[in-house]
């Protein structure tokens, strides 16, 4: 019980710190402007004349690629730079409680940003007759995708005390995991690599698991994939932080 409370205390502090500085507002505006621009100006949501949000969800991995590392880069790097990590870890919390508190804070922050796009499905429902089930699945998948991206960003943040390095590192790892299963890239590899190998590599990617959810299919395997990415990254963060501490 105290463990949950400790996690919540860390979570609350972390979430507050987003909103106490301009970070949260800059981030949310950037997120909404970027997704709006890509959805309307690049994918031409209106001109398509189809009542769904496919053009909106299509861009999410790319927006997260750019913005999630910005939200997570400070999680540990800033604690280490400012020395507050010494304060946090000498309080009666375990390392795992601190990690989980921070992870859920960053994830929750991104989820709030995602939910702020609510006028989009409302507009769609007003103009036409979209399949709300598919839209719900899209949001669900997007939230899971964001969780995976947050966990990657948090791991990158443990590795360094420089926020810039943390940002670039998170961006690279996420990019790699996106490209490994992105059709334009996999199509190139299919020409010379055996299909099973391309498929195996692609199954580690963030993309194919998101695509089926965009179409309105929630497959437990996709959910399990995202959860295992998060668990793996969180466990890796714990190992890295423990090692840093004793070095």
């Amino acid at each position: 019980m105290q463990a949950v409370r400790n996690c919540c205390a860390v979570l609350k502090r972390e979430l507050k710190s987003y909103f106490e500085s301009p970070v949260a507002y800059v981030f949310m505006v950037a997120f909404l402007v970027l997704t709006g621009f890509l959805t309307f100006s690049v994918s031409r949501l209106y001109e398509r004349g189809i009542g769904d949000l496919q053009p909106f969800f299509f861009w999410h991995p790319w927006v997260y690629l750019l913005l999630v590392p910005a939200a997570t880069m400070g999680l540990w790097a800033e604690e280490r730079r400012a020395g507050t990590i010494e304060l946090l870890l000498t309080m009666p919390v375990t390392m795992m409680q601190a990690i989980l508190g921070k992870f859920f804070a960053a994830w929750l922050f991104i989820i709030i940003s995602i939910l702020l796009t609510f006028p989009l499905p409302l507009t769609l429902a007003y103009l036409g007759d979209p399949d709300m089930g598919v839209i719900f699945c899209g949001y669900f998948g997007s939230i899971l995708l964001a969780g995976a991206a947050v966990s990657i960003g948090m791991l990158a943040s443990c590795l360094t005390r420089s926020q810039v390095i943390s940002f670039v590192l998170a961006l690279l790892i996420t990019l790699l995991l996106i490209l490994a299963g992105w059709p334009p890239v996999t199509d190139l590899f299919v020409r010379w690599a055996p299909l099973w190998l391309v498929d195996a590599v692609a199954s580690f990617s963030l993309m194919p698991h998101f695509e089926s959810m965009q179409r309105g299919v929630i497959d437990l395997r996709d959910v399990a994939y995202y959860l295992s990415v998060m668990i793996f990254m969180i466990a890796a963060a714990q190992v890295v932080l423990d090692n840093r501490k004793s070095a």
């Binding site: 105290q2 409370r5 400790n6 205390a9 860390v10 609350k12 502090r13 507050k16 710190s17 106490e20 500085s21 400012a82 020395g83 507050t84 010494e86 304060l87 000498t90 309080m91 009666p92 919390v93």
Partner: peptide, 29 residues
């Protein structure tokens, strides 16, 4: 059982004094 004042008094710069102390109290249970 320990109260600790680390070297150079690190604290979360963006928090207010009150919020910082409330956080410390919450984590102390």
């Amino acid at each position: 059982c320990i109260g600790y004042l680390p070297e150079n008094a690190p604290a979360y710069d963006s928090m207010t004094v009150l919020n910082f102390l409330r956080f410390a109290a919450e984590i102390r249970g």
